[in-house]
Design a protein around this nucleic acid. Structure first.
Length: 930
RNA sequence: GCGGAUGUGGCGGAACUGGUAGACGCGCCAGACUUAGGAUCUGGUGCCUUCGGGCGUGUGGGUUCGACUCCCUCCAUCCGCACCA
């Protein structure tokens, strides 16, 4: 009787649900283990074969850790606010909540079919008011805190107000927007609006008029990580720069801490690297350049203050605030035209032609603060307004971009750093700037002769003394723009009084999304929430009409799983003290600059508030690779309905066309099915191979509908069952690497599952496990498997674990082993990977309880002991023959045994060996002179 | 341009700190049982070969008794970032 996987899998999935097998018990004396998957956005397309890869791996870890005796938190939920449901709502009028609910149901069904051990009683959905209550609550904490950069922690706004009240702004060292200093008297004399405006410069969630990424097609602003190459990440619509009043989170306050902590995280190197680049710390100096014949000065940031003597001109970004006032009447027309043109150019265009040099002279001169020389001030769009001070000193001899600019506009190039061992060169003949930090200073008065690193420090000292500058650290990381002009997101718990935003009281939360008649912006261009009737507080103050961005709900969701039903708090201190942080986090590396930055920031903030025990949320992270599609192609002779088989295609002029992978088996096309695929192929003709088969071409590509290469897990589950599917996804290759989906390969794993079943049954299909004593050989293969499972679990190298299971089952089958003492431990080892068949066999072996909490068998290495070893014998590094020798021989004895072997004569050719290398239990290598 | 990753049979991939390259599986070939099989089982399968052997882990070099593994060079592919001063 064959294994009936469909019935068995259904039975155990029901059993787990009915017995609450995976509901986490708490409190517990057991050690905790928290395995988390990045929760999905429930899209309308459902799961394809690539999605569950990470979930299967994490489920194996969760199940294994449970069997090791850990109390395992393994939850799942849905990141259910997002654009697709809203776009669908705009088109059809269906409320996004309805679409979302439907999609979640489908996801849940698909996930359950795979046999995951999630504790669904802890499910969170970001679009559920009982959850977004805490997203709003967290936002209000951001709103109500500022960052004290002396103490390096977030502190309540009330503490800041006290400081202002006592001594004004002078003693405060905070991460804030720049503003004029004020005294206590001034503060106390201000009215509420003015005080609130000042506080806005400090709040960690603040409202400000900033340059934003505006996406007209989506009708909303986007954060930097949501824009790729000038297009929106979702939908690929063009994005433009625009100044708007927006909410932002002051994430830049945490830049240094986020950078420092990266060193201690057990994360993939590449993700850490991406984050380092994204944070983009650079150390340098701020330098003030007085403007000639003016009391203004230009502030620049430079990482190379040592090259100050080589600064021969300055450049302002077109948007720079001094651009207008520094333009002399004679240059006005030209500058205005240039600034206007720069404004018109989209971010996209500006990035596209970075090689084009363009700029215009303002007519003004600045004074080099060290040598007093006047240098011209230009405006050019190669200087970005958003980085540093939006102005630079240009050192064309030692900066590639400045060099290009100087050459183009014939500006002087003065060398101030010489290469090691060389002296002054003629810069007129240079083809490139010399921007290396190797070398020493020349043409630079007090710092001449110093190597670059010392010159940097010395220059900063001099600037400090003269009051012309100071050392500075710049970050590329910008504050996160936090508002969206959208419907399907968390409403801000904010109302307006006299034009200033105020927080709703906590007991007003959640502020639920209102009903609207349409999901589009209003005719006046306001966000959809402005359509809601009575969108105001009880007192009549208008509520904020923006909503929060997609990443708001995922910033801190991992905390909510710890205490998901708490109505009084986001999560209790006790729950957090027990679960602490995520031990293993699985998800895609595409979140490296978005979710993984924001949630680290949020975790750090909640830590500052004293709510949590850990500063970092995810101790260890693994990025699962993507599963690519394997597309199949037919080759049509253009203009005909004739298709040429793969190997014949060169004989004709053909075009390659994607064909549905379901019509292809092992590259052979089912030509009858193909004719029925589309009406136009009804009369298709085929030029086949000699054996009459039509062979398709294949290629590895991204899985996508349009390429007809999408493999849905549902069909496979019907055909092979969940256990086979789980094993196969793991067997495919290393978890982290991208790999193509091969529909053929699953057969091999399916055979393994059936073979496993047969191992427990006789030829008649009767369960036949017996209680006989196991042999040494049987114990050896079992313990080899135990060892492999344990080792691989550490590295999450499940592909080789599955191989070992196959080896083990093959061997036990060969020696006809049906012994309980072997098969019972083997079943527990396989249980995390193929839980359904394991449960079934476990219960057949007489167990009443689920295998989910059965202990993993301990490794006894004594069974692995070898008494002899088959030495590969090499002559001059080439393996010639093998010789089995007892392991207790010493090196000399091994050497002698090998040289005495008659097969050695041939390779020695009568000569004595020059040298013999013996590595016990590894190899023998004989070196012969030739 | 900068940074990261990867390159092993027809295919997916194994190979721990340098020590038998190709485990395991797919596919393919041959055979058994079968009316039949796309079920099951057995054997074979890196390439070349004059059957002695030779060649083989992207390329070329180096270190070593010995290199997929370490060092240098170059090439290819993929992924980030990209006027960041």
């Amino acid at each position: 009787m064959d294994y009936n996987f469909l019935a068995t899998e259904k039975k155990w999935q029901q059993y787990w649900a009915e017995h609450n097998t995976f509901v986490v018990e708490e409190p517990s004396d057991k050690r905790k283990y928290y395995v988390l998957d990045m929760f999905p956005y429930p899209s309308g397309a459902g799961l394809h074969v690539g999605h569950p890869l990470g979930y299967i791996a994490s489920d194996i870890v969760a199940r294994y850790k449970r069997m090791e005796g850990y109390n395992v938190l393994h939850p799942m939920g849905f990141d259910s606010f997002g654009l697709p449901a809203e776009q669908y709502a705009i088109q059809t009028g269906t409320h996004p909540a309805v679409t979302t609910e439907r999609n979640i149901k489908r996801y849940r069904k698909q996930l359950d079919r795979i046999g995951f051990s999630f504790d669904w009683t802890r499910e969170v959905r970001t679009s559920d008011p009982s959850y977004y209550k805490w997203t709003q609550w967290t936002f209000l904490r951001f709103f109500d805190h500022w960052y004290d950069s002396k103490r390096n922690t977030a502190r309540p706004i009330s503490a800041l107000v006290e400081l202002f009240y006592d001594s004004g702004s002078k003693d405060i060292s905070a991460h804030s927007h720049p503003h004029d200093p004020f005294t206590a008297q001034q503060w106390n004399s201000w009215d509420e609006v003015r005080q609130q405006k000042m506080l806005m410069n400090y709040r960690l969630a603040y409202l400000s008029k900033t340059m934003v990424n505006w996406c007209p097609a989506l009708g909303t602003v986007l954060a930097n990580d949501e824009v790729k190459d000038g297009f929106s990440e979702r939908g690929g619509h063009p994005v433009e720069q625009k100044k708007m009043m927006q909410w932002s989170l002051r994430i830049s306050a945490y830049a240094q801490r986020m950078l420092d902590n990266l060193d201690h995280l057990n994360w993939p190197r590449s993700v850490k690297e991406v984050q380092r680049n994204w944070i983009g710390r650079s150390q340098g100096a701020t330098v003030h350049f007085p403007v000639k014949d003016s009391d203004q000065s230009i502030e620049v940031f430079t990482t190379r203050p040592d090259t100050l003597y080589g600064a021969t001109f300055m450049v302002l970004a077109p948007e720079h605030e001094l651009t207008e006032s520094l333009t002399t009447p004679g240059q006005q027309k030209e500058v205005e035209a240039y600034v206007q043109q720069a404004k018109m150019r989209s971010e996209r265009e500006r990035m596209a032609d970075t090689k084009e040099v363009s700029g215009v002279f303002t007519g003004s001169y600045a004074i080099n603060p060290l040598n007093g020389k006047p240098i011209p001030v230009w405006v050019a769009d190669y200087v970005l307004s958003g980085y540093g001070t939006g102005a630079i000193m240009s050192v064309p001899a030692h900066d590639a971009r400045d060099f290009l600019f100087a050459r183009h506009y014939h500006l002087p190039i003065v060398q101030v750093v010489s290469r090691p061992g060389e002296v002054l060169e003629n810069t007129d003949t240079w083809e490139n700037a010399y921007d290396s930090k190797e070398g020493h200073l020349i043409n630079s008065k007090d710092i001449n002769g110093l190597p670059v690193d010392q010159a940097i420090n010395k220059t900063i000292e001099i600037l400090k003394e003269k009051g012309l500058g100071h050392d500075t650290v710049q970050f590329r990381l910008r504050d996160a723009i936090f508002s969206r002009q959208r419907y399907w997101g968390e409403p801000f718990p904010i109302y307006y009084k006299n034009g200033m935003p105020y927080a709703l009281d906590d007991d007003q939360l959640p502020l639920k999304l209102p009903e609207v008649d349409k999901y589009q912006p209003t005719e006046k261009g306001e966000p959809p929430l402005a359509r809601a009737k009575n969108w105001k507080t009880k007192e009549g103050y208008p509520l904020e009409t923006n909503t929060m961005p997609g990443f708001a709900g995922s910033n801190a969701y991992y905390y909510r799983y710890m205490d998901p039903h708490n109505e009084k708090e986001f999560f209790s201190k006790d729950a957090n003290a027990y679960w602490k942080d995520v031990d293993l986090y699985l998800g895609g590396d595409e979140h490296a600059t978005g979710h993984l930055i924001y949630s680290r920031f949020c975790a750090m903030f909640l830590y500052d508030l004293g709510m949590t025990t850990e500063e970092e949320p995810y101790k260890r992270m693994i990025n699962q690779g993507k599963i690519q599609g394997r597309s199949s192609f037919v080759y049509r002779i253009p203009g005909t309905n004739t298709f040429v088989s793969y190997h014949q295609r060169k004989k004709h002029k053909t075009q390659k066309i994607h064909v549905d992978i379901n019509l292809v088996d092992n590259d052979v096309l089912d030509t009858e099915a193909f004719k029925k695929w589309w009406p136009q192929y009804k009369d298709a003709q085929f030029i086949t191979e000699e054996d009459g088969r039509y062979i398709c071409g294949r290629e590895v590509e991204k899985m996508s509908k349009s390429k007809y290469n999408v493999q849905a897990p549902d069909d496979l589950m019907e055909q092979y069952g969940a256990d086979t599917f789980r094993l196969y996804e793991m067997f495919l290759g290393p978890l982290e690497s991208h790999k193509p989906w091969d529909t053929q390969g699953i057969e091999g794993v399916f055979r393994f599952v059936k073979k496993l079943w047969r191992l427990f049954h006789d030829d008649q299909g009767t369960f036949a496990v017996e209680d006989a004593r196991p042999s040494e050989k049987e114990l050896k293969v079992l313990h080899q498997t135990i060892k492999k499972v344990k080792d691989d679990m550490e590295r999450l190298a499940f592909n080789t674990t599955v191989s070992q299971f196959m080896i083990c089952v093959n061997e036990l089958t060969d020696i006809n082993c049906r012994k309980r003492a072997i098969l019972e431990p083997l079943t527990t080892l396989i249980a995390p990977f193929a839980p359904h068949i394991a449960e079934e066999l476990w219960s057949k072996m007489g167990h009443r309880d689920s295998i989910a909490y059965a202990p993993i068998p301990p490794l006894d290495s004594s069974f692995l002991k070898e008494y002899s070893f088959e030495y590969p014998v090499s002559f001059n590094g080439k393996m010639r023959f093998k010789k089995a020798l007892p392991l207790d021989l010493n090196k000399e004895e091994i050497e002698q045994a090998v040289l005495d072997d008659e097969r050695s004569e041939k390779y020695l050719q009568g000569k004595p060996p020059k040298k013999v290398i013996v590595v016990p239990k590894r190899i023998v290598n004989v070196v012969v002179a030739n």
